[in-house]
Write a protein that binds this DNA or RNA. Sequence first.
DNA 1: GGGGAATCCCC
DNA 2: GGGGATTCCCC
Lengths: 409, 409
Amino acid sequence: MNSPYSGESASPYSSDQSIGVPSPPTVVAAFNRPYDAIHHDGPYINILEQPQSKFRFRYKSEMVGTHGQLKADRAEKNRAAFPTVKLSKWNSGPAVIRLTLYTAEDNINQRKRHVHELSGKNCNKETGICEVVVDEKSDYTAVFQNLGIIHIAKRDTREIIKQRKLEELMTLARVRKPHHSNEEIRRSITPTDLKKIDEEAEEEAKSMDLNKVVLRFQAFQYDKNIESYRPITLPVDSDVVFNLKNATTGELKIVRMSACSAPCTGGTEIWLLVEKVRRNNVHIKFFELDENDREVWKAYGEFADADVHHQYAIVFRTPRYRVTNLSTSVRVKVQLERPTDKDTSEALDFTYLPDSLKRPRINLENTLEEGKPHFSDLPPAKRFNISSYTNEAIDLSNNSKLPLVFVNS
Amino acid sequence: MNSPYSGESASPYSSDQSIGVPSPPTVVAAFNRPYDAIHHDGPYINILEQPQSKFRFRYKSEMVGTHGQLKADRAEKNRAAFPTVKLSKWNSGPAVIRLTLYTAEDNINQRKRHVHELSGKNCNKETGICEVVVDEKSDYTAVFQNLGIIHIAKRDTREIIKQRKLEELMTLARVRKPHHSNEEIRRSITPTDLKKIDEEAEEEAKSMDLNKVVLRFQAFQYDKNIESYRPITLPVDSDVVFNLKNATTGELKIVRMSACSAPCTGGTEIWLLVEKVRRNNVHIKFFELDENDREVWKAYGEFADADVHHQYAIVFRTPRYRVTNLSTSVRVKVQLERPTDKDTSEALDFTYLPDSLKRPRINLENTLEEGKPHFSDLPPAKRFNISSYTNEAIDLSNNSKLPLVFVNS
DNA sequence: GGGGAATCCCC
DNA sequence: GGGGATTCCCC
């Protein structure tokens, strides 16, 4: 009966858990006091600037040189903004706002301390935790500039989680047996405790998504009575930050499209160059918006697994437009869509053309311009970039250009 | 003066090298006797089956499960063949044929023991060296089945080379001071020797190409007099084996082509899906052979760096054909070409069409087949595979099919 | 900031 | 046998 958790005190591993703690304590255990000490009409943190949604996590091996910081979600083109929080309903002097990475489960109560770490100014290199002091001068506002997210290698996660859990356990033991020596505290942890920690760490490591984090903010004040920090607000989580360098969470993007118009009857083969997609986790969505930007029609490009070349190109056929007896062309949109997270790429313009079968005969003579691209019956493929592609689709309804096709007699 | 190489005996690190040894000894040092003991009109090894030119090297971490063996270069579709050598002009009983990986410098005299190892039956797990006994029964022929090439991680190469050099040095010292204890031998190696080894290992590691090896074969016989093996042939190197999983040495391949014909005037945009290429190390070669398979014309597709999408797609424009007043279409070939090693992909058929400007007008009416691909004025893009693509290019000279183009009025 | 090389994992 | 995920490196 060596365990600090045997007898009347509840073991953290028994079902008899301590009061409704929404998340386990971090390794900085002195910070963690029961939340019920917090008045719910008292001070709180609100997030003035959410972090950007996509950001490239960097491995420790990449921490040489500089690679850009986490910015605010709606940072302006020119003037960068950064994640920012404000401590409200508080005027009892300086406070510390602590920022820790947590996992991104939908259910906030399931979130755990993440193995990934924060890097940059105000960040503790040991813990990967960032702290900023706020006071009246700063209007109790903390701007987290210069943040990086350190991607801990998968192979290291288990051991890290295990060590943290061990720390927790020892801290708890120290709290309960304040007069014991470190040696005694260490010895008070039983093999059963260790086994439990091991199993939990294994399970947690396996289920931890290394490509998503949230920023968890909480405010603390130094309390002279207990000679340590105590929380003065509940924790608040930011929106999810996704790892940009990952096919499951990275940015969807159409880099180049072989044609941006095709007959409304569908079935036209089009080639796309795209950024890292996953074969079974990408759709090509055609859709149409009304004047109020409401989606009035959608359909998906058709392709097989084999039409996705590595993670960078897709050869597909256009879907039939909702109407096939067009007399004039119709402008719609195309975008990539990722089923797993419903994320989409920026939408490109696409033009559905009247069915050529219903067009009058035309004269081919003297119509080929020498040196003009000859790839397609449609306007030449364009290189797209953010600033130029939105107006590339060609509307043929007001001129005499006609698409031609392979002639079969 | 502790070094085994001080005084009158030549240090392996002085310029006064021992007799014309074309390559350094391996760690299996007992095997290595001066080659001048070999009669040059005596026994020799010849290679009956060269190894295949491209093979995927596997990391140690991939050594779980099975991943296929190194086969002979011209293994039949159905019946696999394996690298095979024969010991000739020898009839003095069983011999050992040793197979060791060496680097693949053009100049054979610069080749060194490679850090990569061989795996499989008859291979020593410590040394990565493979040995097979041949005798009259086997017609002195060794078939190396079940060979794998283990890709040693770059970060480990320096230390491995260093350890081998140390072994060599110790072995040499033992030979020269046969009555010294191991401890004495070890102490006889000076800091200067060690420094030299370190520098050499560093240099060798840096210059070693981890994506190429040759198989070096040599025959040995057990000699009762010296109680060890002595070589009975000179070593013989196989053709180079390239690592298949590498953009610089891997197989060049056109997986899919958006069109396999275009006007002889050139400038047609065509999209290629390819296997791992390097932006600055790939050309698209069009060429024509005469009846005797002599190349009578060649030209290259035009594209910029930015037209290579990651390592898997290239958007380029066709070169102008050597004649632009064709009255009938001409069949040529296209292939990828890699400047650094002059390697090429399999060549696909491509058809140059008469300049459409010179074609008579045609009638478009009733010529579009519903549901037919509409991507291009050219035949629909085809998925290529080894067995089917060679006949895909369409020759339009003998029928009434006509390519149409974007009409500009 | 970003692409791709090197290494590892798994269908 | 092969594709791609993971980690690392470098322009």
